[in-house]
Write a protein that binds this DNA or RNA. Structure first.
Lengths: 127, 127
DNA sequence: AGCGCTTGACTACGGCCGTAAACGATGTGA
DNA sequence: TCACATCGTTTACGGCCGTAGTCAAGCGCT
């Protein structure tokens, strides 16, 4: 094993790029630029910079395809999401999920449908 | 109404200061420095800088006490926590809580006790 | 063979962040 | 009154981030 470079933090802009790659890969830089969230209104140059930074952070990998690269994620979305979730829950809710749910509930940010869904989910978990 | 300056983003280091004030306020800068998470190992100067920045961001307010200030939060922890939670859930879970719970469940980050707690909570919510 | 287009690498630059020292005003004890 | 301690304010500085322009190398046409 070993070889397991600690995961460097992915910034918010970089995350937008990762989302594209998680959805479909491998992609060329151009493909990524075309698919990235249009609200960002990035130029191709910006996307290339972000891909470069993600490369050095080892969050994406590249494979040579003729004279260009094909990019693909090197960290699973699963892992990223888990890390970010944990960070937030640790920082704001003492590491426990219940207070988060309670919090959202108190602010009416949970619908009846949500409740039903989560109950079903938990029931399934118990067995 | 009006007068409601948009909440400027509180950084992570600033948040550590806020936690102190949310727990007990008003406090002098010195008090804050003494109570802030010791893992940070900040000098008094650093804490003063952070308080200053929080002041200009209007996240804390100060009241003059002789020749020094007493600081107190100007945004409720509740509000901050809600904002951060929403950001994360929007960014990673399409705005829905269920996937977050499902996610944590799949990673065994929910204990049986958690499940029971949340179920009780949801049951209470339904009525 | 020469030219332009594509593509990654390098450079840039202002902004915020983390961390902190220097400065200046003010109060205080001797 | 004079040195000293105490505060808040200002300035600093390296680092990462967001955004993007420029450069150099190679490919494809003509």
């Amino acid at each position: 094993m070993a070889e397991n470079a600690k995961p460097e933090r992915i910034s918010e802009a970089e995350h937008a790029v990762m989302e594209v790659l998680w959805q479909d890969s491998p992609l060329t830089a151009q493909d990524v630029a075309e698919r990235v969230d249009p609200d960002r209104a990035w130029t191709a140059a910006t996307v290339k910079t972000l891909l470069g930074r993600l490369l050095t952070k080892r969050a994406v990998a590249h494979e040579v395809d003729g004279r260009r690269y094909l990019y693909r994620p090197a960290v699973a979305r699963e892992e990223y999401v888990a890390g970010e979730s944990r960070r937030l829950i640790d920082r704001l809710f003492g590491g426990k999920l219940t207070p988060l749910v309670a919090h959202l509930a108190e602010r009416d940010e949970i619908s009846a449908a949500d409740i039903a869904e989560i109950e079903a989910l938990l029931k399934a978990l118990k067995q």
